[in-house]
Design a protein around this nucleic acid. Structure first.
Lengths: 341, 341
DNA sequence: AACATATTTTTGCGCGCGTAAAATTTCGAT
DNA sequence: ATCGAAATTTTACGCGCGCAAAAATATGTT
């Protein structure tokens, strides 16, 4: 394209020979105009440097092309990865994903929600923090914006997509009981519904197998899970207060911290001879396969969760309001057997 | 606040008893109006639900309150963490950070840049992909938007903030040579200027100490560094083609993969007796302290890089164009001695 | 060639707010 | 109480585009 700069659609209309309303139609959806017109516009676009003003567009359109994405903690690889996939999906569908992270703080979550709302997005995909969320704010948001909730099933929005903890945890408990000492369960203060469900699922699974559930709750409510796993792990090992040599952690990051604690204390982790501990996680975080030993865990189907969430949201956005019930799509976890348990 | 919804500033002007231009001033900068006026506005804000329309604001203001942030790969914990800090800084200063990730792809980087440009941000903080970036697009962007480049020193923008590889790498090389066999250097195909600088710094440091530099370049150009480290590590160990028992990796993620390879092959890593390998990294990634053994590395000062980048950008934005030269701020790395080397 | 239909053009208003200039009010200091 | 500076109000226009309705034109069919 040449150096010619076009200020607005009016000017571009002049140089391209297409009327402004038609141009408006074209930019909204290039396929909505006649092929010959489309060609004319596009050849003009190659010659002149013009992009419609985003703000002017969105000010007047009732439906923007923006998709809001909100996660509780973007530096968590689970969310980083799932956001990556969601973003890709949105872009491919011609939408503008915009990502917010609450950084683990209620105030920032509310802030992000308010900002997002004022962006008048076509839809939103949110993973609420859970217990630390401001339910009223969430509700006010989902009342206005078509929203799919993922990962953490807070009872707002038009649908939920996540993992079935009541399938995945028993899967792991069964495996651990079958192959060694029944596991105890290491959890953090339950920051979201998943944490509670996982603990309950653990207890139920243990009782069903005739074992006493042993839940160890750690202190600390921030998002430095590995650090908590390490510190609490060292403490538990020093105090010899682990009720079992097999520990199921409520998520992989906690397990990674616990692995580090075991290493520091000279305890060999794994299921072979000479191993003092078995450690298992949940989620199959991106780097769980690279721990030493590699972490046995239950995988969440990241891709499936991302794709289904986006798919459902698009359905809702295009007016398929037929659903009476708020659907809850739960994916099954798969056992990922590695060396740690 | 009550259920009363206010549609626009006009209506809010009526119910608050403050004229619209003054309200406009208030929302632009609450301190720019008289204290009594500010109080009146704020008490009205508690009673009525109103937020100025973002699009209308930005359409008319020459300078928006938006700050663009672009990183090559948000799922990389280094960037996730630094973005987290940058975002916080911006919010505290009353700006609106908006985060983009190129997901390692040139097309997406260009896309993000184009979107960002049309957002007319007050400034931008970008970490270009480097070799895979489209230099012309970067230049066109930085010509229009006041930009600070961080992490990867591509020669665009008004300033650069990053780490001094020529200080940090020799620091590690010195340490490794002093305490054992001189290291070989494991790198990936150089995706950005840092990779090249680190290799060169390694070679220079080795030669200065009278040793032969041994560079091992791995295959694979994607962002799955750990996987590459694992696969290449297994191959190198199987082939017995490691030129030294001490391996300095060009970054922690590669080192983490290599640790996994060593574990898999039954090689004990560390500097104690009975250890077959020493492995060191670079960056002090958030989870390097949780590996087994904990990773010896050189820390990058995340917080300093984030804070200085933002600080410089704000300076540029407020018109301190005095700088003739494009300043390059390089932070020194600190040796982080852990158990792996 | 004549017609029905689809598409484009013309015209003109509206969105919510920024901003400028002049008139008015408020405030603090004397 | 008086005055001048500072803040606010009044008035009015502009930003770039969406959108609606009517008129004009293009397209495809028989």
């Amino acid at each position: 394209m040449t150096a010619k700069k076009i200020k607005n659609m009016e000017e571009f209309s002049k140089v391209s020979g297409i009327s402004r309303p038609t141009l408006s139609k074209y930019f909204h959806d290039p396929e909505s105009v006649r092929k010959t017109t489309k060609a004319k516009v596009e050849s003009a676009l190659e010659e002149y440097d013009y992009r419609p003003n985003i703000f002017a567009i969105n000010q007047n359109r009732k439906l923007t092309k923006t998709i809001g994405i909100l996660v509780p903690y973007l530096a968590d690889p689970f969310f980083a990865e799932i956001v990556r996939m969601i973003e890709r999906q949105c872009i491919e569908a011609g939408f503008w994903p915009i990502v917010f992270s609450a950084h683990g703080e209620r105030e920032l979550e509310n802030n992000a929600l308010a900002t997002l709302k004022s962006l008048r997005p076509a839809g939103a995909l949110i993973a609420p923090m859970g217990r630390n969320s401001d339910l009223d704010v969430l509700r006010a948001f989902t009342d206005e914006v078509p929203t799919v909730v993922f990962d953490s099933n807070v009872a707002v929005g038009k649908a939920f997509v996540g993992s079935n903890n009541f399938q995945s945890i028993p899967l792991m408990v069964d495996y651990l009981c079958r192959t060694g000492e029944p596991p105890c369960f290491l959890e953090m203060p339950p920051v979201n519904p998943n944490a509670n469900k996982r603990r309950d699922a653990y207890c139920m699974a243990m009782e069903r197998l005739g074992h006493d559930p042993q839940v160890i709750q750690t202190a600390g409510g921030d998002w430095g899970f590995e650090r908590i796993g390490l510190e609490e792990g060292v403490r538990l090992i020093d105090e010899r207060s682990l009720p079992s040599d097999t520990i199921l952690c409520s998520n992989d990051r906690l397990a990674i911290g616990l692995l580090a604690a075991a290493y520091q204390k000279g305890l060999r982790v794994g299921h072979g001879p000479g191993c003092a501990l078995r450690i298992a996680g949940h989620d199959d975080h991106p780097w769980s396969r690279f721990t030493c030993p590699p972490l046995t865990t239950v995988s969440q189907d990241y891709r499936a969760i991302a794709e289904r969430s986006v798919h459902i949201l698009f359905g809702i956005m295009s007016g398929e309001d037929a659903e009476e019930e708020r659907p809850e799509i739960l994916f099954e976890g798969k056992l990922v057997m590695r060396a740690s348990a």
